[in-house]
Simulated scan of single mutants.
Amino acid sequence: MRESAAERHDRLLELVRERGSARVSDLASQLGVSPVTIRRDVEDLAVRGLLDRVHGSVSWPQDAVPPPGAATGPGATGPGGVGSGLVLGMLAPSATYYFAEVIRGAHEAAARAGARLILRISDYRPEEDHARTEGLLAAGAEGMLVAPGWRRPGDPAAFGDWITSLPVPTVLLERQPAAGSPLDALDRVCSDHGHGVLLAVRHLVDLGHGAPLLMARADSPTAVAVRSGYEEALRILGLRAPQDVIDSVPAELAPEGFEDAVLALRDAVRSGVATAALIHNDVDAIQVVQRLAELGVRVPDDLALIAYDDEVAALADTPLTAVAPPKREVGRHATELLVERLTRARGAGGAAPRRHLTLLPELRVRSSCGHPLR
């Protein structure tokens, strides 16, 4: 299977993180892509603040998660040492797109607490999560922030039992296990995606539209939560879905499947089935809007549209209204909770009750919904 841009970005970031800095030409050679492709990747990552770029080279930003072995935060004693500060391990499925902000929030909170944060990336391979976490423990992690690389509904049962046996305090990030399962007893900090979907559907209805269509992926916990949140939002508002959910796939990995999804949306608009849509995620939404324009469907004139995630929605030709989960705050609150757990353990302060902290997304209104319908 061809490597996606997100996977290539993760490999690029891993190389720069390990070295601290690298020449763009060297990165192109090591990643096996053309100089044009790597320059485009570097530009994208630099705009999002994940890399610093200077005269043909890139470096790891000073305010980002530091390379392994670097000292950070108050009390740092030099490479590899952080005085008496805590060492926190973090497992994330990606260092780009959605989780870039989660990681940034975790790093900021760790730095304020005088702790060192060390990171491992799973590349959404849940079968490798356990081994990568063992690597964090071997590197000295005293507590864990864990966002497993689950992609499908069955992954928590197949690749989750090991988390409950970790020998250190653990906080789940942006993952909501089944109620009553062993994982459900862990601390966790999550975005309430159901609330985010309800905000989007209610906004479109308030503008005069009927129930919007949902076009969504099914390859991540967020996508699954958006789908279930859509059903719940329609129930709360007393609406019926205009038709079945349109299954979406990444355009770069499955162009034919993506085209089928866009054509299904176009047909729904032309036939009058729907005048509004919610699309997960906003990268897909931008590509959908571009393709719809080529097919004669204009946003927002013919279709009011809301994207989900709000990573790049504001950068579209027609800025997209988007649901924005509080990604950075998820990382910050999870880290603060973990530091509190470890501080209590060090001071023999006693164990506090486990916590499930749910943060609410917000709706950022832009141009893609147009004006209220008459």
Rank of each mutant, 00 (worst) to 15 (best):
H280Q: 14
F159A: 01
A109G: 01
L45Q: 07
Q287H: 15
L337R: 14
G154N: 10
A141M: 08
D302I: 03
L359S: 03
V339T: 13
D219G: 00
D10R: 12
G331C: 09
Y97H: 15
H107Q: 15
R116L: 12
L234H: 03
R151Q: 10
E329M: 12
E43M: 10
E101N: 13
V226P: 04
L183W: 01
R152T: 11
A313W: 00
V87F: 08
A307S: 06
T96W: 00
E134S: 09
V47M: 12
V288N: 07
L137F: 06
I306V: 15
E329I: 06
D26L: 12
P93Q: 02
A158M: 09
I38N: 03
A223V: 06
A22Y: 01
P325V: 01
L253D: 13
H371P: 14
L357I: 15
D267C: 07
L373F: 07
V189F: 08
R19S: 13
V33N: 06
G81W: 13
P250I: 00
D267F: 07
H333K: 15
D282R: 05
L119G: 00
P372I: 02
A304I: 08
H356F: 11
A251R: 13
P156H: 01
V24K: 09
A218P: 01
G49D: 06
H280A: 10
D310T: 09
V42K: 06
V47I: 13
A185E: 11
G349V: 08
I38C: 01
D206A: 12
H107L: 02
D123E: 14
D310N: 14
L213T: 02
R266W: 09
S367F: 11
A264D: 09
G56M: 09
G83W: 00
P177L: 09
H195M: 05
G73K: 00
E18R: 15
E231V: 14
L303V: 05
T318A: 02
T335C: 11
S165I: 10
P372A: 05
Y308W: 11
P177V: 08
P372V: 07
L199Q: 12
H193D: 13
D63P: 02
H130P: 06
R152K: 12
S368I: 09
R355V: 15
G196D: 07
L303K: 02
A200Q: 08
D282L: 04
A322C: 09
T275F: 01
S181N: 04
G73V: 06
D317V: 14
G83N: 02
